[in-house]
Design a protein around this nucleic acid. Structure first.
Lengths: 231, 231
DNA sequence: CAGTGGTCTAGACCACGAT
DNA sequence: TCGTGGTCTAGACCACTGA
């Protein structure tokens, strides 16, 4: 009977009713106004609670059709995409990085296509190794669009990783990311100090600043690296 | 000069100021009341816009300290964790699954520890293969807590995948998920019809219903599987 | 202590879309 | 058409937390 309601208590109570099957999958639940009356709060408060739940996929909301419990909720997991230095230093280790290669050259067509430039157009290629406590942590293979900012030509990336430099100098508006598994090539294996043929967890990321591509990067992590999140 | 404002226009304008470095990393931005005045809208509207941006990690908000642009925004990517049937059928393929093994036995200690039961306590183990157009798609290795519901003993899982059955019969309140790369063991390779030693993208998931663990599952995908998301 | 974000309310109008 | 969610507003009080 507490007088002080909050959108979180509504949120929790609705979740409870979903989890205990008081409201079953596929079923329509009362509308916002009715729930507001039940919980003696404003409709806005109910709206906030339901909106948050809907974002997790557990509720389906449509005007006029009302709110329904999702039949097969698609779980969503949010991962923090690491900024290497932070990730490593938060683990109490020392971060370092080594620039392995820096050149301006034409990328493979697959990369040109991915970032939407003409085949043969030259980009800045950087290869670098990220280290934790002086042990290999991740191998980075990156292509940077030179049109993104003139300053990129002047930067050697020997004292700062491209990762951090880009974050500080070139904003991005959107991007795509994918995770997959790769077999370690002989060089990758040598660089990461693992056996050739090892299974490497790999992250590939493509970022855009409005209409122009900023960078395409592939990060190969050392063996046994895991990417975690909570549901 | 449109009279009709919305939290989205505030949202977009704030994003623009961040991206164009009108407001620089680390800098404090005007408080909600001032922004509301500038945009001639209610403070609630500004609040909604800033709250959404803060959730992406681009803004740091603290009472009294105000709102600042994050120095090193940690990108967040939200992945939809697949329900196999849906994922495959959405790709226009036919879904099938085969139960490969069903037994009640004690799991390795690592699994017992993960789900928090005593070593030696017996669980239901299921191994299954998910197929797309009758070709191997993912190999599932699952442990189910028998205490989760008595019905689980009666279900053979020959006509429905454990994935779907659990979703329909046992709610979960929270969980953990991780992605990593694994080398295909000889059996896994045989089942997935790939070379032993191939790099397999693997998903491991542990779900809870309140204090009790529901299931621990490991999904090994066929070679070249990618998990994608937008930033 | 006082400034700032966090939330709540009552009431209003609007937009979508099922029927 | 008209029920339902989506959003906006003005005003209020509260909860943190920096100075």
């Amino acid at each position: 009977m507490s007088r002080q309601q909050s959108w979180q208590s509504v949120h929790d109570e609705v979740l409870r009713r979903i989890n205990t099957r008081i409201w079953k999958p596929g079923e329509q639940i009362p509308n916002e106004a009715d729930l507001a009356a039940e919980f003696s709060c404003a409709r806005t408060t109910v709206n906030r609670a339901l909106r948050e739940i809907a974002k997790t996929g557990l509720l389906d909301r449509r005007r006029k059709a009302g709110t329904r419990i999702a039949e097969q909720p698609v779980a969503k997991a949010t991962f923090d995409i690491p900024v290497m230095r932070q990730e490593i230093e938060e683990g109490g280790q020392t971060y370092n990085h080594q620039l392995l290669q820096r050149e301006v050259t034409a990328p493979p067509d697959a990369v040109s296509d991915a970032i939407g430039v003409k085949h043969g157009k030259r980009l800045l290629r950087l290869k670098a190794l990220h280290l934790a406590d002086c042990r290999p942590y991740a191998f980075e293979d990156r292509w940077v669009n030179l049109e993104v900012t003139p300053k990129v030509n002047e930067e050697l990336f020997d004292n700062i990783s491209a990762n951090e430099w880009l974050l500080q100098n070139v904003p991005y508006t959107h991007g795509e990311i994918s995770f997959f598994a790769m077999t370690a090539s002989p060089d990758a294996a040598k660089i990461l100090n693992c056996d050739p043929g090892s299974a490497l967890f790999t992250l590939e990321r493509l970022t855009w600043n409005g209409p122009i591509a900023v960078t395409h990067v592939r990060m190969m992590f050392t063996k046994d690296h895991k990417m975690r999140a909570t549901l």
